[in-house]
Design a protein around this nucleic acid. Structure first.
Lengths: 198, 198, 198, 198
DNA sequence: TATGAATGAGACTTCATTCAT
DNA sequence: TATGAATGAAGTCTCATTCAT
């Protein structure tokens, strides 16, 4: 009967986010319904509203948290790689691959549920996404300027690289044939081979 | 309001498919509703059912038609490229890029609405998709066996290439900065550079 | 190609009535739909309207034809029984049982779909039904007056007899355990035993 | 429009069942719609689903409750009649008549909406109904074996008796010409006269 | 914080019917 | 006489959300 003060609420909120990520990933935001979400959390639908403002706000929060975390973690990984350009580019790619296997639900949602956001939220998330793409484009430009990369069109190349690297989260399964290290190695080579000056 | 005298069933059916592709592409299948579809076609919602069996069957039909067309057109393009392996691989890539710019609605839907299919339809479409991937993998294997390609993991590479090339249809707009020929050239190089023996 | 002039239409109309009786009997008037009716007749739903005025009119026609036929046949059977009261009563009962096994679809519908009729049709059919009940009540009264029957309440007894005898069409099946003659004999005794002076 | 403060779930559920019985009795299950049901209960159609699973489940529940109540009450009435066979038979008949006047909506529905049940529910209700018929047949057999009844065919006679006694609920009105006691007396005599050894 | 009951909007779909051909 | 295509009304049911308790 005694409730662990101050902990149940937070635990419920966390469960809601966790289950929501899974459901939106599997079914899509529009197809996910709050009944199922509540049921899998173990509460009644009306109780969700003690933890979320609305279905739309839940999506927007999940996306924003994800984008913030992605940008922060990416910057840290690149910064930790030191000053050498190719090290930083490898760090970006490696981190992207790892992040996209470890948090593929968030990633998938952030990529494919943008259209479900209402205009205000949409603008905010798209801006953060553009920031991520801009970081890659800056690295590519640096490499071109330094004569280490051979790239005909930086934006198209950046999009192509991101599409390739992001595609992982549509088929990756944690217990699949390949380990994370192998995935990182394979994709780093595929990506860099495509652009390295030779 | 006004009934179009001499209205043509085939024309209506085609309009339904055309509008449905656009709406599903923009909003997603779950978020699209038949009211809007009917309105944009210029008929009443109930009239849709003179041409479709159900919303689900409409999706499944659109996907199946697309996959059939894609496989047929791909096979023709590759066959037309002659016997040389690298010509056929270039033909596959080039055709993929062109097809994915010209029919990006169908492509996008076929890639991202699989989860909206009911189990029977899902299995059917996934099998056709696997056929498409198998065609690329066969070309890659041929190239490896002939010593022209250097590929560490054929399935992963095939998925990566397809993800990269398919990504185009998420950002391509018909009147954008780049023409189709440039897109084809850029992506062919990016893809082949990643795997060519050097 | 050559059509048997003047016969197809009539044949279709007859088929509609035949199928309608079966469907209404099985599913009820409200649950029967014209799509199924048309399909079982082998035409398109819109073609039904070359033969019927409306779903409601079809029901009303079927009922009215049935009631007319029932009244006519009953009168003939009773008249053929000669002048003796008990012969006429037996004729009424026997005819009722036979008719209710042979045309149980019509009978069932006429008894249980009255509420589906619109007011005008309802009044017409109820009046004919009352005529049928009145014929039985007249026979019972004659029997009471002649001292051959012992009946406490003629209307209630008439209703009870009719309910009992009509009940047959809820369970009778043409190839069942009992033949028609046995059914007639059994029910005649049950009915008469209940009211015969002793 | 006004929301009834402190509204009571149990009360609403009971109202739904009460109104549903009346509407199904009057119009038939297929012709009854949930809009009308909700309106007569005083709630919105969607609110019905806080209390029922589906229209079909509502019907099935109503029937099942009725059959359970009928069987229980019948067994109690017969048991209370003591050991004498004819007393028990009279108790069965008398109870049937009373029950069929007092709960004629339920009775009528249980008799004439069987076809509206889906297969699983249909089988369940038909089995309970067969149990009721079996109770009467057992009494009749006992009477025949004891030499008190003269019955040519027990099943047919049971069906005929039940049809006769059940017919009451098609015409009985609470404030009609006859009181319940008279109805019981009249029908008991009609039924027993038909089968009593003489 | 959790819930049961209610809501209004709207979803897909069915239906009887019409009408030009 | 038959049909394909259209219609408007209506049907059951789902959904996100609210609110008193």
């Amino acid at each position: 009967m005694a409730r662990i003060t101050g902990s149940n609420g937070a635990r419920t909120a966390a469960a809601i986010r966790r289950v929501a990520l899974r459901l939106i990933y599997r079914q899509g935001f529009a197809a996910m319904n709050l009944r199922d979400l509540a049921a899998q959390v173990g509460i009644q639908p009306s109780s969700l509203y003690n933890h979320i403002v609305s279905k739309q706000a839940l999506l927007s929060d999940l996306m924003q948290e994800h984008m913030t975390a992605l940008l922060t973690a990416t910057d840290a990984a690149v910064a930790a790689a030191g000053p050498v350009l190719m090290d930083r580019l490898r760090a970006f790619i490696g981190h992207h691959v790892l992040y996209h296997t470890e948090r593929r639900h968030e990633v998938y949602i952030a990529n494919f549920e943008l259209r479900a956001l209402d205009p205000a939220n949409h603008a905010r998330i798209v801006a953060m996404r553009a920031g991520y793409e801009a970081r890659l484009m800056a690295l590519l430009r640096e490499g071109v300027d330094a004569g280490e990369l051979d790239i005909a069109d930086i934006p198209v190349t950046a999009f192509a690289m991101l599409a390739m690297l992001t595609g992982i989260c549509t088929w990756y399964r944690p217990n699949g044939r390949l380990g994370k290290a192998e995935l990182v190695a394979l994709h780093t080579e595929l990506a860099l081979n495509g652009i390295r000056r030779r």
